[in-house]
Structures are given as C-alpha cells and as structure tokens.
Amino acid sequence: MKNLLRQIAVATFLILAALPSHSQEKLVKVNGHNFNTYQKGFEKRKKNTPAIIFENGMGVGLGNWDLVIDQIAKFAPVFAYDRAGVEKSDKVYQMPTPKVVADNLKSILTTLNIAPPYILVGHSMGGVYIRGYAGFYPNDIAALVFIDPADFTETKQQWNSIFRAIGVPEQKIDEMLYDRLYTKSKVDSLNFGPWSEGEVLGDLRRTDFAAINDLPMPGVPIYFLVGGRFEVPPDRRSKDFDHERFFIVKSNQNMEHWRKVIDASGKGGALIYLPKSGHYIQRDEPKAVINALKFIIENI
C-alpha cells in the first residue's frame, strides 16, 4: 500500500510539473533570505489604485487568509506573505521588531514591483505591524484595516484597570503583571519566528508601545473589525479571576481606544463589531472581511 501511494504521489507530481504553472505563491529573495509570498490580481491593476497587503497574526502563515483572499482578488489586487521564520519563509535569527518587519515588507514589495498605494490589513499581531509600517512609510498608505488586533494603544496602567474593574486584589494584579511581562521565556531556536514575535510583543507592552506611539499616523481612513465571542476553553481559563468577565471589559476598553484612533485620523473609517465571531474573523465570518474591503475599495 505504501509503495502504491508513493507511485501515485510521484505520478501526480509529474503531471502537475508538465502543466503550465498558474500558482500565485512563490519565494522571493530579499536581504539574503527567502520569503514565501502570494499575489493575485495585479495583471488588472490600474495605475495609482490601491493594492491590498495582508499582515498575519503572531506566528501564523499566509494560509490563514485562504477563505477571503481569492474572493477579494476579484475586485482588488492582493498580496500576502510569511514573515521570517514562519511557515515557508527562511528562518532568520533577528528579533522581528516593527522596524525590521516594516523594512522587510517594503523590500519585498519593491522587489516584486508592487508600488503604493496600499491598503494594509493586519490581524492580531499583524495589526501592530501594519501600525508600524504606516508610521515608517506613511506616504505608502491609502487605508488601514485592523482585524481583532493586539491593542497597540495599551498601557500597563490600563491593563491593570481591567482587573480592578472585575474585583481582583491589588497584590494579585501586581503578580499577574509581573508574570505576563517580566518573566522571560527560554529562547526557542526551533520555532524562533513565532517565539520571537511573542517576545517583541512583550517588549512593546513593557514600554506601553512607545516604539509604535512615537510614530506618526497617516491621515487615512481607518477600520477595525472586532470579534465579540469569548472562546477560551474551560481548561485554559484563569483560576485567579472571571475570565469571561475580563474578556468583556477588555473588549469594551479596546473598542473605546480604537474609536479614538479613528477619530484622530481625521479621515473617517468604521468600527465593526461582530458578536458571533471569535479572534479569527477572516475564518469565522469571511464575508464580513470581504464585504468590508469591497466597501473600502469602492469608497476610498
């Protein structure tokens, strides 16, 4: 049976290799390292029309957009990639700070002749990274779309205020803050990409995201898509506080921060709350992401 399966696999590979390639996924070498990229719809792109650039969540590859990206490519050119050390991209032993990630993305887009303007779409940690890119390269940006992002406006004091609101004692709050931000983890060389992104997020949180907040915010439309479903399984919930209550208070606080980000841009936008969606909105409610981007493209 194993030999038969091997023969089928080889035959399939030979057939596919003989066919014209229509794959949109390829490796691009930048600064001596290969980055896995995906692009579609650029053959129809008109001059000065926006391209949609996706930035993944922490340690996640471009495949997490698979339910939306091809549908979006029907009305706008799309680009996604794996950051260094994630999925098919080369492992690079360098901390993926917002500056490093922004410069890598800029080099990749330049190498592929994907010119601005860009609509940057960032999920989770990708939201932090697109905020960084927008600060380093503000003239490239046509709009920003944050999909359930890590809160890049967060301060340690604000984080502690969530626990005070749900009745956690001060000593326990101090202990949890120390565990969250000041307990160093061992370097994970095997999974350096995902591990290092988590370390960078911790570093940013320790400084109240100073490296992000010191950057200018371009005057462009800003959109947030926010999931409202609590999805932490019972065996992973904290025994120190009401985890679901924490999620509700934190979500409300985040949305208040993000409304201020939209208002400060001076160019409008929207905050879209999706109560049935979890953190991966692009997988839980792909139509919401597709329709939001179609609206942005039509109205930008």
Rank of each mutant, 00 (worst) to 15 (best):
Ala115Arg: 14
Pro116Ala: 10
Ile114Thr: 05
Leu120Val: 04
Asp148Tyr: 01
Lys106Met: 01
Gly135Tyr: 03
Phe136Val: 01
Tyr133Asn: 03
Lys106Arg: 15
Gly132Thr: 02
Tyr118Gln: 12
Ile141Tyr: 10
Asp140Trp: 01
Thr110Asp: 13
Gly127Arg: 05
Lys106Cys: 03
Asp140Pro: 09
Met125Phe: 14
Pro116Gln: 09
Ile130Asn: 08
Tyr137Gln: 07
His123Gly: 08
Ala134Leu: 08
Ile119Asn: 10
Leu105Tyr: 02
His123Cys: 04
Gly132Tyr: 11
Tyr129His: 09
Gly126Pro: 05
Ile114Cys: 10
Tyr137Ile: 03
Ser107Trp: 03
Gly135Pro: 02
Tyr118Asp: 10
Pro117Trp: 13
Leu144Val: 06
Asn104Glu: 15
Leu120Gly: 12
Pro117His: 10
Ile130Ser: 03
Ile141Ala: 09
Thr110Trp: 03
Ile119Gly: 05
Ala142Trp: 06
Thr111Met: 09
Ile108Trp: 10
Ala115Met: 14
Tyr118Ala: 13
Ser107Asp: 14
Leu144Glu: 11
Val121Ser: 06
Tyr129Lys: 06
Leu112Asn: 03
Phe136Thr: 00
His123Tyr: 12
Tyr118Gly: 05
Val128Gln: 02
Gly127Val: 04
Val121Tyr: 12
Pro138Cys: 03
Pro138Tyr: 03
Ala143Ser: 13
Leu112Cys: 13
Gly127Asp: 01
Phe136Tyr: 15
Asn139His: 14
Pro116His: 11
Pro117Thr: 08
Met125Pro: 00
Met125Ser: 11
Ala143Met: 07
Leu109Trp: 13
Ala115Asn: 14
Val128Cys: 02
Ala115Leu: 14
Leu112Trp: 01
Ile119Arg: 14
Met125Gly: 00
Leu120His: 13
Pro117Leu: 07
Phe146Gln: 00
Thr110Phe: 07
Pro138Val: 05
Leu105Asp: 02
Ile141Gly: 03
Ser107Glu: 14
Ser124Asp: 04
Leu109Cys: 09
Phe136Ala: 00
Ser107Arg: 04
Val145Trp: 10
Gly132Met: 04
Tyr137Trp: 05
Ile108Arg: 12
Pro116Asn: 13
Leu105Glu: 06
Asp140Arg: 07
Asn113Tyr: 13
Asn113Gln: 15
Ser124His: 00
Ile147Ser: 06
Leu120Glu: 00
Ile114His: 08
